[in-house]
C-alpha cells in the first residue's frame, strides 16, 4: 500500500510552461549566441585573417559575411569551442525556445517577416484541427540515442505533455505529427518515407535535434544523407544536441499554433547567472 501516499509525496512537480514562465535555466546551456553580431571581427583586421571565427566551429555553424557574424543554430552542436576561444564574441545562453518554422530562421531569427507570416499562415491552415490535441509518432532516422531520452522525458511528470493534449501514438495511422530524430541514414530513408505516407492528412514534420536539422557533426559519411529535409518536407525545426525537452515542447506548441517563436516564457540569460526559482534543480520540497 505504500505507493498511494508515495505518489503524493512531492506535491506538484509539473512545470507551468507555457502558461507561466519556467525558471529552469540555471547553468543550462541551450544554445550559443553571437555577441555584437553586427560587427565584423576587429581582431581579424585585414582580409587575410577573415574567417578566423568561422574556423572555430567543428560543424561550420559560424558564418562571417559583410553583415557581420552569424551563428547557424541548425548546425550548432553547442560544444562551446567558440565560447572557449572567443568569450568576447560568443556566449552560452539558456534560451530553450529554440524552435523555428523555417530553416533560415535558425540563422537569422528576425529577418524576413513577410515570408514568416506566410509560413505561419500556411501552417495554421493545416493545423487548425489539431489545436486542442495532437498525436505524435516518433521515428529515429539515425540518432545517437540521447534524443530519445529527451523525447521520452516529455511524458514525465515534470513536463507532462498530456496536460496540453499532446500524446504519443504507436501507429502512424493515428499520428498528426512526425517527430524525426537523428541524421538521415541511407538505411532509414525508406522506412521514414513509408511512415510519413501512412499518416493521414493534415500532417506535420518536426526535425528534432541538430543532427536531423543539418546532419550535425556526424554528417557527412558514406552512410548519412544529412538533414531529414532531404527525405521529407520539414515544417518545424528544433536544433540542439540533443534538444532539451523544453525545446521540443516549444517546437510542438509552435506546430500546433499555440505559441509564437519567442514567448519569453522561459528564462533567457547568459549562462552563469543564477536562476531565481527552480523547484526541481533547487532543493526538493519534501
Amino acid at each position: 500500500m505504500p505507493w498511494i501516499t508515495r505518489g503524493l509525496r512531492d506535491g506538484i512537480v509539473t512545470t507551468r510552461y507555457p502558461r507561466r514562465p519556467d525558471g529552469y535555466g540555471d547553468g543550462f546551456r541551450a544554445a550559443v549566441r553571437v555577441l555584437r553580431s553586427g560587427t565584423t571581427d576587429p581582431a581579424a583586421g585585414t582580409r587575410g585573417a577573415a574567417g578566423a571565427l568561422a574556423r572555430l566551429c567543428p560543424t561550420g555553424a559560424i558564418v562571417e559575411d559583410t553583415d557581420g557574424v552569424h551563428l547557424d543554430r541548425g548546425r550548432c552542436i553547442v560544444c562551446g569551442a567558440c565560447v572557449a576561444a572567443r568569450p568576447d564574441r560568443f556566449a552560452f545562453v539558456s534560451e530553450v525556445e529554440t524552435a523555428a518554422l523555417s530553416r533560415h530562421m535558425l540563422v537569422a531569427p528576425e529577418s524576413d517577416d513577410e515570408a514568416l507570416a506566410r509560413l505561419r499562415a500556411d501552417l495554421a491552415d493545416r493545423t487548425r484541427a489539431l489545436r486542442r490535441s495532437i498525436h505524435i509518432r516518433h521515428v529515429d532516422a539515425g540518432s545517437d540515442g540521447a534524443e530519445e531520452w529527451e523525447v521520452a522525458a516529455l511524458t514525465n511528470p515534470v513536463y507532462d505533455v498530456a496536460r496540453l493534449g499532446i500524446f504519443f501514438t504507436a501507429s502512424p495511422r493515428h499520428a498528426d505529427l512526425l517527430l524525426v530524430t537523428g541524421v538521415a541514414t541511407a538505411g532509414m530513408a525508406e522506412p521514414l518515407r513509408r511512415t510519413y505516407e501512412a499518416m493521414p492528412d493534415p500532417k506535420i514534420v518536426l526535425a528534432a535535434g541538430t543532427d536531423s536539422v543539418s546532419g550535425g557533426l556526424v554528417h557527412p559519411t558514406y552512410a548519412t544523407r544529412g538533414s531529414v529535409a532531404g527525405v521529407l518536407p520539414v515544417d518545424v525545426w528544433v536544433p540542439g544536441s540533443p534538444p532539451s525537452p523544453f525545446s521540443l515542447l516549444h517546437g510542438i506548441l509552435l506546430a500546433m499554433g499555440l505559441l509564437p517563436e519567442r514567448s519569453d516564457r522561459l528564462d533567457t540569460r547568459v549562462v552563469g547567472q543564477p536562476a531565481q526559482d527552480d523547484p526541481l534543480t533547487g532543493r526538493d520540497r519534501q
Binding site: R6, G7, D10, V13, Y24, D26, G27, F28, R29, V78, G80, F92, W149, E150, A153, T155, N156, P157, V158, S244, V271, L280, T281
Partner: peptide
C-alpha cells in the same frame, strides 16, 4: 512517475555541474 522524475533531476544536476544534461 517517481523514477522518471528522479531521472530528470539527475540530468538537471549534471547540467548544473557542467552545463550539459
Amino acid at each position: 512517475a517517481r523514477l522518471t522524475t528522479h531521472k530528470e533531476k539527475v540530468l538537471r544536476l549534471r547540467a548544473r555541474l557542467c552545463g550539459s544534461r
